[in-house]
Structure formats: C-alpha cells, structure tokens
C-alpha cells in the first residue's frame, strides 16, 4: 500500500520538476546526439569502442547532472535502493528527458531492476544499419545512470537488455547494484594507503 502511494508521489515530483525546467526542441537534441554518435563511429574502428566511449561520456554527464537533480527536483533522501529506482525512473528521467520510465523485474534480493523506456528521445530518427548491429546506440543513458547513482553512493552496473532499435518493443535497461560506496572516505584516499 505504502509503495503505491510513494510511486504516485514520485510521479508528481517528476511532473513538478519537469514543469520547472527550461525546455528545448527534442528533435535538435535527438539529431545532435546522432551527430555525436556518427562522429564516434568515424573515429573508432570497433563499435565496442564506440559503446564504451558513449558510456564514458554518459558517466561524466551523470556525475554533474546529479547536482542539478538534487538542487532542482526537491526530492529528499532515498531510504533504500527501491526508492532510488523509483526516483530515478519517475523524477530523473521525467525531469531531464520528459519521458516516463517504468521500474520492473526486481530480483529477489532487491538489488537489481529493469527500467522500461517506452519513448526513447535519443532514437527517434534512427535506423541501425546491419553492419552496426553491435552498436548500443543509446548506451550513453547507462553511463548517465551509473555516474549519477555513484555520486549518491550506489555503485551500479547498467546495460541495455532490450533495444527498440534492434526490434524489441521496448527499451530495457538493467541496473544492478554492485556495492555501496564507502561513506567514510573516498577511494582516492584508499589507494594512497
């Protein structure tokens, strides 16, 4: 019962955050991302390297984006990973991309879930040619999620398990919690010791 009411609260928070954001045309966003992916494809020979580079770029975005999220979303602390997932899907995606994302397929331990992205604003005009079937076109999203969650102490792994560009009816990103980042001191101090 409580979980369903918190879900709708997250949706409301997402809608409110979205209203406050400055907006721009989604197609220019879409085409800009396409131009960048094309550039990476020209620069790297292997599509796996392109996937990796997209993830890295996303990670760097996520680390900064989380600041804006915390400043503007009005969302408080999340008590557990489930709340993190709901907030990520209902507030985070909504606030920045204007789309609603569903959280599904929790594992028994509550450490892994799937995000179902029905409307992917990165891929509207995209058709993957056969020679790029290994390309995870929207992999930047995985990086963003990893970067953002790491900043709030959740170290996760993300990957696309379903991709609308490869014929799946929905985009699905699997998010798995690896470990909590140690709160007492940062990794850079660990390495020095």
């Amino acid at each position: 019962m409580s979980s369903s009411s918190s879900r709708s609260a997250a949706t409301r928070a997402g809608d409110q955050a979205w209203t406050k954001m400055s907006k721009m045309n989604a197609e220019l966003f879409n085409l800009t991302y396409g131009a960048m992916v094309m550039q990476l494809i020209r620069d790297y020979e292997d599509v796996q390297d392109v996937n990796q580079q997209l993830e890295t770029m996303g990670y760097s975005i996520g680390q900064k984006l989380v600041d804006e999220f915390l400043a503007k979303s009005g969302v408080g602390n999340c008590a557990n990973f489930r709340e993190v997932a709901e907030t990520l899907a209902k507030v985070g995606f909504k606030m920045f991309l204007g789309v609603v994302v569903e959280v599904t397929a929790w594992n028994a331990e509550g450490t892994a879930f799937s995000l179902q992205v029905y409307d992917n604003p990165l891929a509207d005009f995209v058709e993957l040619p056969p020679q790029y079937s290994g390309l995870v076109y929207s992999n930047i999203l995985c990086g963003v999620i990893r970067g953002a969650l790491e900043m709030i102490k959740y170290q996760v792994e993300c990957r696309f398990v379903k991709d609308g560009l490869k014929g799946d009816e929905v985009n699905e990103i699997r998010v798995e919690l690896r470990q909590m980042v140690d709160e007492s001191f940062g990794e850079e101090y660990n390495e020095g010791a």
Binding site: W18, S22, K23, Q39, L40, I61, L65, F96, G98, I140
Partner: peptide
C-alpha cells in the same frame, strides 16, 4: 507543440561533444 526535452539535457550532451572534440 512538439515534443521537448530539458535544455539541461541538451547542454550536458553538447558539453560532452565539445570536450570530445
């Protein structure tokens, strides 16, 4: 009307693109 994304999302993306170049 058109569909929209946040200007922030675009700016983050564009910033990565500029840094890459």
């Amino acid at each position: 009307g058109g569909s929209e994304v946040s200007l922030s999302a675009f700016s983050f993306l564009f910033s990565e693109m500029v840094q890459y170049y």
